[in-house]
Amino acid sequence: MLTGLIAQLLNGVQYGLLLFLISSGLTLIFGVMGVINLAHGSLFMIGAYLAFAVASATGVFWLALPAAVAGGVVLGALLERVLFRQFRTRPHLDQVLLTFALILLFEEARSALLGNEFHSVPVPSALDFSVPVIGGFGYSAYRLAVLVICLAVAGAMVWLIERTRIGSAIRAAAENTEMLDLLGLDAGRVHTFVFAGGTALAMLAGALAAPLQSVYPGMGDGFLILSFIVVVIGGLGSVAGAFWAALLVGLIDTLGKAYVPQAAGIAVCAMMAAVLLWRPTGLFGRG
């Protein structure tokens, strides 16, 4: 009973950290560019399929992680330059429809290239064992590795945003885009950087998640909705908010699915409703 609870808690934290990778990109892209990207869940799906393709072609799962990041940077930069740049100032309706079109096109491209089957990606053999945690209870080493990698990425993001030059430009852009021009910085480059980074994070999350669950066409949908809830709870544009909200949502969703399967979705929704009643701009959002 207790060991089961510990395993579920660890699962929840690890799921929450994956959610953080996805939602931090979503919240930053909104905060800096003012663009809503419904195709963010599809990017997660593309990352997972890329991991499947790389792992089955080379037999080495670890190559999938740099491939997902590199692929995400290229794809994100391309999307920003070609499409999202001109949609920054367009109405929400147009942004919703543009990104919905992208979802359909991404799904079709995936279907044409890799088919519609369910796939499973084997856990890398080096980590295919369990680590004793408490009282002889074992926990998957790969899941622990995912936990560590996500935490490392979160730490790197905080360092990048708080301590580097591009980070201060991102913070300035989130505050006020005109500020960038006053500071003599190129707003376009900051936007490309943020969008490419957000895309790479979502695809990395997909690649990391591939061995944990099956890889299938609609796998990004659930993650998209949950990361929207994370962004609403955490506050738009707030990376710290996304972090804590992602952990909260990850834990509630995982524990809910384990102990009260029918109510898991409703529980997350009720939490969002409570936050909206209490603080309509999210826990960490500015007024």
Binding site: I36, V96, I225, F228, I266, C269, M272, L276
Partner: peptide, 21 residues
């Protein structure tokens, strides 16, 4: 009443989440 406490993008995300629920 819950969704309308928010505006703009927040409203979009909130309605999406409630609809999916």
């Amino acid at each position: 009443p819950l969704a309308l406490r928010t505006r703009g993008f927040f409203f979009l995300m909130t309605t999406l989440a409630f609809g999916q629920m």
